[in-house]
Design a protein around this nucleic acid. Structure first.
Length: 606
DNA sequence: GGCTGCGAGACTCG
DNA sequence: TCACGAGTCTCGCAGCC
């Protein structure tokens, strides 16, 4: 039964008569971002009883929240939520920070049950509960005090409750219960932290960078229009006074194709539509032409401005920090994704145009940033997944895996002992075979994790397909267990229509598609990597709780990297502890080495 | 003529 | 057919008022 509660008296009476020690919980808010959101109301459900507490423009909002705070810290022992980090973030925002760690996120549960499906609450209610398709439209349009809105809010909690009963059974059936309860649920708190924390922006440096990049863009733009004989004028913006190039011609792909043709330039690379490609591949192929070289640089600075520099203000909160969203269920492999803004694709310094975007992220006064990176993470996990002794031992003895691959593929005849990074002649050899090592790394070691073919290697390196195939054969001769692991993975996929990572995470794929076999093997590594970083974050979070004096915060994750902020004076004490915690986050046959960088800005810490 | 939604193509990252 | 996983921007086109 649905009950709507408006006053403190009603709330107190309602909860005194019922047992809500285990319940589903959902919040309604005015906004999604932590800094701007305000609570409108919240609903609780135990299946039998469901209520909505209306807090919108409620005179008793404060005392009701105080009562809820008491309820959360003393009575509620287990909480079920759909997209738990969001509701926990709302609790935090209204000052409720003491609540149970025993949580169940139905969204993440469903992602483990079927990573390919839609995880929206309404969609799941239709699919699993037989609820008829309901369309509340934008319920908030009806007003936060309408019956439609109350019903909508109650249903969210009720459906979440019913779904958790179904999903809980399935998690055990699929054997992912430990992954869910011991890794995924603690990790929800890490996501909550990251979305609350955000990262500080240095507004002055951002503005300097913007000015410099704009000036460079305008300079390159003028040159391009002049070379292509396109008419333009330079005008000043009415409000900012900044100079801009104005022309009825735009440097779109079509225009660029036409300019290429007029200059007699032809690219062998075509788009799917059969047109001449104007992408990086083409520009590198046509390198040497004045227009092409200028365009190459223009594209870099244009991308930097339009996708990054100019977008930062849109995401900047009043306290000078940027808070991104992190999606735990957005990828099929288990990786986390980030948006608004995406903190996982911030540009590195491009040697062609050295703008340092990462320098705009900084630590606040008295604090410093730490970037902790798993070095050679995927290759180490490949060795573990394939149980390839040669590669495992190589890592254990600090050998250079890229030089080893080069040695096998090109038959360099280097003694194993000399490929140890500690050997006195190692650096000399690394330098001597720089080119071969580069190919070993970028054409064999990494591409093989992606399931590349001779055709792929040939296309990327320029060698013939036959040569590439010989290289691949030699690679697999050197690491025979990798080949058998790939075969085992393919056989399993053929029989079961899914594969399982070491953490028992699943990926369902169609064995009738050729691509599936590459995706399956890559998943074993990428999926494991995603759970390793989860475990690392969970353990580091515990470490930070044990040391409140550090005032340490987890800011964001970039797949194999965690970025922290910490009080300056504790960096030396904390660093070895963070390193140890991350390297031993999972019980693996190989230590996952971590490299730490420290700096006032993200750029320095990298 | 102007607005909106969508897909293609391009770029960013691990 | 041919290298895994993401997010976001701009452009051009189709459809609508």
């Amino acid at each position: 039964m649905n009950t709507v509660l408006h006053t403190l008296k009603e709330v107190k009476e309602y909860f005194s008569k019922r047992d809500f020690s285990t319940c589903a919980f959902d919040t309604e808010t005015t906004d999604l971002g932590y800094y701007k959101l305000d609570i409108v109301g919240c609903s609780f459900s135990t299946g039998e009883a469901t209520c909505y507490i209306d807090l919108w423009q409620n005179e008793e909002k404060e005392p009701i929240i105080l009562f809820l705070s008491y309820l959360f810290s003393t009575h509620i022992k287990s909480l079920v939520m759909h997209n738990a980090p969001f509701d926990m973030k709302v609790l935090h925002k209204i000052g409720i920070t003491d609540f149970t760690r025993n949580i169940f996120c139905t969204m993440t549960a469903h992602h483990l049950i079927n990573e390919n499906a839609n995880h929206g609450l309404k969609n799941l209610a239709c699919k699993y509960l037989g609820v008829e398709t309901v369309d509340y439209g934008n319920a908030s349009i009806c007003g936060y005090k309408s019956d439609t809105f109350y019903e909508y809010a109650c249903n969210d909690a009720k459906w979440t409750w019913e779904l958790h009963k179904i999903f809980n059974k399935k998690l055990f059936e699929f054997g992912v219960n430990r992954l869910f309860f011991e890794v995924e649920m603690p990790f929800q708190f890490v996501i909550m932290d990251m979305e609350i924390n955000g990262i500080k922006i240095n507004a002055y440096r951002l503005e300097e960078l913007r000015k410099a990049a704009r000036a460079k863009k305008l300079f390159l733009e003028r040159k391009l229009y002049e070379i292509a004989h396109l008419p333009y004028s330079i005008q000043c913006d009415m409000f900012t006074g900044e100079a801009e190039l104005v022309s009825k011609y735009k440097l779109s792909n079509n225009t660029i194709s036409d300019i290429f043709e007029s200059r007699g330039l032809k690219s062998p690379y075509l788009t799917e539509g059969g047109k001449m490609s104007t992408g990086k591949e083409t520009l590198l192929y046509l390198k040497g032409d004045e227009f092409v070289d200028m365009l190459y640089k223009y594209n870099i600075v244009n991308k930097l401005l339009s996708s990054f520099v100019d977008k930062v203000p849109n995401h900047l909160d009043a306290d000078g920090r940027v808070r991104a969203s992190f999606n735990n269920t957005g990828t099929t492999t288990g990786r986390l994704s980030s948006s608004n803004p995406n903190m996982q694709n911030n540009p590195k310094i491009n040697p062609e145009l050295p703008f340092d975007f990462k320098s705009i992220f900084e630590a606040p006064e008295g604090k410093t940033l730490i970037s902790a990176d798993y070095c050679g993470q995927e290759l180490r996990l490949l060795a573990i997944v394939a149980n390839e002794d040669i590669l495992l031992n190589a890592f254990r003895e600090n050998m250079d895996p890229h030089l080893m691959t080069a040695n096998s593929v090109f038959g360099l005849g280097i003694e194993p002992e000399m490929m140890k990074t500690t050997h006195p002649q190692y650096n000399e050899l690394k330098d001597k075979y720089k080119h071969e090592r580069h190919i070993g790394k970028n054409s064999y070691n990494f591409p093989i994790i992606y399931g590349t073919t001779a055709y792929g290697i040939s296309k990327n390196t320029g060698i013939t397909e036959e040569e590439a195939q010989k290289g691949i054969d030699k690679f697999f001769q050197a690491y025979p267990r990798i080949l058998s692991a790939m075969k085992k993975c393919s056989d399993f996929l053929k029989q079961n229509w899914h594969v399982k990572s070491l953490t028992r995470r699943r990926r369902r794929l169609d064995p009738n598609e050729k691509k599936s076999y590459r995706q399956a093997f890559n998943f074993l590594i990428q999926g494991l990597a995603s759970d390793l970083i989860r475990c690392a974050c969970n353990n580091v979070r515990k470490l930070f709780e044990e040391h409140p004096e550090w005032e340490a915060k987890i800011l964001f994750i970039v797949h194999d990297e965690i970025v922290f902020e910490i009080k300056e004076e504790y960096v030396d004490i904390a660093n070895p502890m963070i390193k140890e915690t991350m390297e031993t986050a999972m019980n693996l046959p190989l230590r996952m080495e971590v490299e730490l960088g420290v700096g006032k800005t993200y750029s320095e810490a990298k």
